[in-house]
Design a protein around this nucleic acid. Sequence first.
RNA 1: AAAUACUCUUUUG
Length: 261
Amino acid sequence: ALILLREMATRGLNPDVITYNTAISACGAGEQWELAVSLLRKMSTKGVRPDIVSYNSAADACAVAGRYREAMSLLREMPRRGITPDVVTYNSAIAASASGGKWKIAVGLLREMASTGLAPCLISFNSVIDACAKGGQSRVAVNLLKRMPTVGIIPDVISYNSAIDACAKGDQWKGAIGLLREMQAVGVPADVVSYNSAIDACSKCDQWETAVGLLDEMRAVGLKRDVISYNSAIAACAKGRRWNEAVNLLGEMRALEVTPD
RNA sequence: AAAUACUCUUUUG
């Protein structure tokens, strides 16, 4: 992308804001947060005024690279440049907080949105739940999930999956399974990630039999078990000192053409 | 009169 951007100049073509934004997001995808930020700076000097997408993209590039501080400082810089943060801006900031392990900041940003008159959307809630998961706050995560319908947002598969992951990371295997059953009951079909997260929860809580049971259930409901499903179930057996079951699962992977890693 | 391009969320070791 950067090569093409340079090539434009040699051909007398003028990059516009979308050209730069696309290049910034390409840097983000390539985990080159510094390049993303330097393009953001450079476009101004070339007479192309960064817009909200420019900032959101550069901030997200920082977030993806785990540069929480840099992401936040870009987002805080926006108002000074006359750009009003939007829902995507906040969602990115929440995601940056999540990867920085700052669940309280994520929750604070959700409140800040509302107080600014921006309505949090499905992704906002999902991102805060993820931040709580990464911060080991399963109770807060589940409370947020429960609160979503009260503001008119119906939790989707990612909401549930993030909350199940929060239970896994908080050693709440019963909570994880409860949510897995709940989503099925309310018409949000569980997917491979839902089961994988629930199996991980069982593994962390020394529930190897339940973990293996969920793996079997995946087959029964027609979900394609992947390397993560097996790794988690094998880890559960290992923790439970069930070496025989672990080796059997390894063999089963091969038979199903899931390549062990 | 008209087409096309840019940003946010989930799972194991």
